[in-house]
Amino acid sequence: MCHHTTPRFTGLARRVLMLLAGFALAGCQALTTAPDSETNSNTEPTLYQQLGERAGLAQIVEDLLYLIVDDERINHQFKGVNVAEFHRHLTDQLCQLSGGPCTYSGRSMRKAHADMAITETQFNALAENLILAMEQNGIGTGAQNRLLKRLIPMHPDIRNL
């Protein structure tokens, strides 16, 4: 578990920096609120934005993982997976799929799930948990549906049909 230490501190440092930058920007924003909110209302948020960008998706995936752990229909399938890597790959995948600036670097869906004999029951369970995770993060019905629409074509690969 030692190799986790380095990214942890780098991540933390980056977060602190981002927080500081955020405060700095917030200060400026207070002076220039009007033009900023104008640009926001003029452009339709993209699906990626509606999902809270990469940080929002990372939270959704984390909540999804908690739901999976508690879900006796599917948690046995996930026994022994590298959680950090799975989290990063799934987040990148959803980010890329929703039009965000990420590159998914994991395996193809068919390869990744090839030996799991995933049943329809298990696929449904995971889909349910994803929907619940999005709900927990306040994602609207429309954005949920648009993401699901892009995920559904993966069904035959994941179920190895």
Partner: peptide
């Protein structure tokens, strides 16, 4: 977030 992922990993290991 990393420590929470570690907790998750432990939970997965204990999965019923």
């Amino acid at each position: 977030m990393t420590h929470r992922l570690l907790i998750l990993a432990t939970l997965f290991a204990l999965a019923c």
